[in-house]
Amino acid sequence: MEKLKKGNVDNLKLKFIDNVVWVLLLIGIVVFIILKPTYFNPFTNMGLYLNIPMQASVMGVMTIGLAGTILLGDIDLSCVGIMSVSAAVGILLFKTSHVPVPVAIIAILLMGGLLGFVNGVLIAKLKAVALIETLAMNTTLAGVVLAITRGRTITINEKAYTAVGQGKLFSTIPYLVIIFILIYILMYFVWNRTPLGRSLFVVGGNAKCARVSGINVDKIRIMAFTISGLMAGLAGLMLSSKMGSINSVFGSSYSMDIIAAAVIGGTSLAGGIGKVSGVLGGVLLLNFVQVGLQVFGMDSYYVQAATGLIILLAVLIDSFRIRLANKE
């Protein structure tokens, strides 16, 4: 009987850890309300909470793409590089070559997807180690962005372009939030209901078994990195049109945030485990904490330190989950 109870306790613990991100989010909200009731009271200052999805949208779109590669047991460190290069190329297209804005938007997405595809081919076919390959890709792309912008800020005056990031549907819901939600619904279906999504889990869980079972492992890898690149491109579009400009450090603050959000959201770095809803929770948690700390007037450098701590926490939780799951 004692063992049964213990087994149940372990199961409960696993359940708890799988959803720990929502618990943390709740704790965060409660703590902030206690510390500064006037500001964080959801009844009097609803706007603060409604603003979170808007804040989170760009980063959220990137994170779900990245999470797909973590699911494989790999990682994509080139998201920010792909994001800024795609956006820069698209903007140059309509600013200097006078290409129509919608065409430039498509070009941004294609550029993101293409760079992700290149990552995928190098990793799947040429067996480059994902960690270093994507890091190299990121450094390369960061250099390209510097070359394009020459360290200056390029402002965007085209209303058709900035409407995506600044406009609202029926003047209430920002387009960015709509994109954010649609992408997560789409990804939910991709992860849970398509052969591609299932294959991601199989490859991450046991790549050898996936191959013997007839799953085209290389193709799945390439697809995951292509999606990650595509999402990064989309995020680049969203952020540049929201800010109305790009510069050489465009989006660089996201580089660690997205990893933190994916991992605290329950995507196991060992591969094979993860949920779209968990990633969403991770994205919301990270944004809430960052907004909250800024409200307290905390220096942005400390906010970055807080992000680092969240990653540390996430990695520890991940290792704890693996140990718990491996117990007989």
């Binding site: 889990f201 199989v202 869980g205 046991n206 050898k208 078994c209 996936a210 013997v212 799951a325």
Partner: peptide, 9 residues
């Protein structure tokens, strides 16, 4: 173990 199953699934 190595090629037949994915134990976590």
């Amino acid at each position: 173990h190595a090629e037949g199953i994915v134990p976590i699934m």
